[in-house]
Write a protein that binds this DNA or RNA. Structure first.
Length: 298
DNA sequence: GACAATGTTACAGT
DNA sequence: CACTGTAACATTGT
């Protein structure tokens, strides 16, 4: 589900609820999520019981994000590495007095969570932190320290954060000019800049007026500069709006992001272009549905 | 039933 | 080696 704006929004919306709270107990309902199978941490999977036991009594300290990964840190130094992949959700729900779930004024319906797609429940002092994941692609991995996450090779090969001071226009232009691959593939590979997925890749290309099916190094310097600005502008706008709730994505408090209302091409194939009124073209590119305006994107 | 869905990785093939 | 396409992960909705 989530691209960078969604993951960032989960981070900021969750932190105020979690910070300072202690974990009373943890229950894992789907072992693969915490075992590391299918990730770079295939070796030495921690058993479910150990995952649950290690987190008991831990106090939340902070949440950080690297690309589309979240790192939850505890005061003791222990940490969780989380990737939501396509349909993961991390939602906090306050207890109602008497130990039940809160409802008054809460944006999510009573009894909606936990549900059959809730695979981890963290019982905290004032509420529950729930990990839901319809397609079960995501993972939540335990590490004794943040340093071990960093040393574990999880972030190898990732490009720069879009707001890293080192990620300059010059850097972007230079790196893109080195790559002959299809623009969409390069942007989504996370190897130059991280955070773009299928939604924001199409949106950024539309905003910059370039077709995503061109070769990256075919773009002129001017086009690359436009694209650099568009990538940063689109991601920033989406973060401000709390991300795009197209399907499964929810913020940490269970509410939806608003950016879906501002999407100009994603999911709009066949509709009219907001710029020129022409019909938007939809096609497959690198196995992903892609939408462009033939008139506005060259 | 076929197909597609916000991500990522592995692998076969050119 | 560079790159492309496909499958896989598992489920739901159209």
């Amino acid at each position: 589900m989530p691209e960078l704006p969604e993951v960032e929004s989960v981070k900021t919306s969750l932190l105020p609820y979690l910070k300072g709270q202690k974990v009373k107990s943890v229950k894992v309902w789907y072992p693969k999520l915490v075992s590391g199978k299918g990730t770079k941490r295939d070796a030495d999977p921690l058993k479910v019981e150990e995952f649950e036991k290690e987190l008991e009594g831990e106090e939340f300290k902070g949440i950080t994000r690297r690309a589309k990964n979240l790192i939850i840190e505890f005061v003791s130094g222990k940490a969780l590495l989380i990737h939501l992949k396509m349909t993961g959700q991390l939602v906090y729900k306050e207890y109602r007095k008497g130990g039940d779930i809160a409802k008054g004024g809460h944006p999510i319906q009573e009894n909606e969570f936990p549900n059959k797609h809730t695979y981890i429940t963290f019982e905290l002092e004032k509420g529950q932190l729930l990990y839901n994941d319809v397609r079960m692609f995501g993972y939540v991995l335990y590490f004794p320290t943040v340093a071990e996450i960093m040393a574990g090779g999880h972030f190898d090969g990732l490009g720069l954060e879009p707001y890293d001071p080192v990620f300059t226009e010059e850097y972007f232009v230079k790196e893109m000019q080195k790559r002959r691959g299809v623009l969409k593939r390069v942007l989504m590979s996370q190897e130059v800049v991280v955070g773009l997925g299928n939604i924001y890749c199409d949106e950024a290309c539309f905003d910059a007026g370039v077709r995503p099916d061109r070769a990256a190094n075919d773009l002129s310097e001017e086009e690359l500069k436009r694209l650099y600005a568009s990538v940063r502008r689109i991601l920033e706008l989406a973060i401000e709006m709390g991300g795009s709730s197209v399907n499964d994505y929810l913020l940490g408090d269970g509410s939806k992001g608003n950016y879906a209302n501002y999407l100009k091409v994603y999911m709009r194939g066949g509709k009219s272009c907001v710029n020129c009124g022409g019909e938007l073209e939809k096609f497959k590119l690198n196995g992903r549905t892609t939408v462009v305006c033939e008139e506005c994107q060259k």
